[in-house]
Design a protein around this nucleic acid. Structure first.
Lengths: 192, 192
DNA sequence: CCCTCATCTTTACGCTGTCAAGATTGGAGG
DNA sequence: CCTCCAATCTTGACAGCGTAAAGATGAGGG
């Protein structure tokens, strides 16, 4: 039942956007009364957090899947993880907006959600350290470089799905091309 | 009257956050009936767009103000514009969220808002081209580099105010330190 | 003087999240 | 087998939201 509600919520977000994610709409889609969700989620924020959690798991999966394609080059793996980040956002813009939207924002209220997002960041951080171990990235403060890389792909993802770069950036191909170029510029700066 | 409503809206956003920005709350704060705002704004989205527009103007102002401090070094001016971007977000997090929030997102519905945000981007773009003219930045596709720089500072701003970098990144000093380091890494890559 | 138009108010509707109270149900203990 | 209980679901209600419709008010020009 909880899973059915979550599936309905994900479908609503995918089809109609974050604004349509409503407790009552989820209940309708699951063919239960408008109060039934309260027996599985404390309130609306908890439902939204659960949806966001699914999003972070999917993002992590797509990143892992993509970096498996180049097992030998640590630097390429690091770069591909960033491109996967942008690609995921453009392929699932509504879900991505929920993941970083105002209702799931305060990580205090939903600590497990914060853990899930930190795990995604840790994937990038681990790849970065392997790149450093492979003498391909400067040995400056690793955390600082990780935050910079995360900021770059996160901002690129956000501005792409907000249409700030024009319509060509909303296609997966266009977004990946931008991500490829952007990460390339950063890499030239990170190279030792 | 329109200005009074706008001021009330800005105050509500600043004090209570984007979620509290409500047509009725604005009307209450301005001591008019809950329908009065409709004579000055087509609907709630129009009010939100007007608030966002004020935000972009303030952002542009802070950027211009900050780059005036270093009139001689084009590259430093470019960098300072990015730091001002992050600084503005951390100093006005609620307003920043409205500027890129879902209600002001579709630039189609409010073309003047899109113009205002494009103007901010153009400031950075112009500084970039001056840096190129001063032989301090590679001559790759200027638009591409501009988008990369915008993405970096935008992502940094977003993740700072979302608390994803921890509490130390929510202070103006901490955020500026991060922005300084991040733009530095990118600059090493952009240098010819 | 009266008409007109812009501005503001009142009332009403459907939607939302959530509280409170009842109904159903399935399994554990006597 | 009966009873009780806890979990689950439903019904009904309330306040707050955005907004549509219609009435009030008041100033300016014929």
């Amino acid at each position: 039942m909880r899973q059915a509600l979550l599936d309905a919520a994900l479908e609503i977000v995918r089809r109609d956007g974050a604004a349509a994610l409503t407790l009552r709409a989820v209940a309708r889609a699951a063919r239960v009364s408008h109060m039934a969700p309260y027996h599985h989620f404390a309130d609306k924020a908890a439902l939204v957090a659960a949806v966001a959690r699914e999003g972070f798991r999917g993002l992590g999966r797509e990143m892992e899947e993509r970096i498996e394609r180049c097992p030998d080059d640590p630097r390429a793996r690091f770069r591909e993880s960033g491109i996967a980040y942008v690609s995921f956002a453009v392929k699932h813009p509504n879900l991505f907006r929920v993941m970083f939207g105002p209702e799931a924002a305060d990580a205090e209220a939903h600590p497990d959600l914060g853990a899930e997002s930190r795990e995604v960041f840790d994937v990038m951080q681990r790849l970065l350290q392997q790149s450093q171990a492979g003498y391909q990235v400067r040995e400056d403060d690793a955390r600082q470089i990780g935050l910079t890389a995360w900021s770059l792909v996160h901002g690129l993802a956000m501005l792409c799905i907000d249409g700030q770069f024009g319509p060509e950036a909303t296609s997966p191909e266009g977004a990946e091309r931008l991500a490829y170029a952007a990460t390339g510029a950063l890499f030239r700066g990170l190279r030792r």
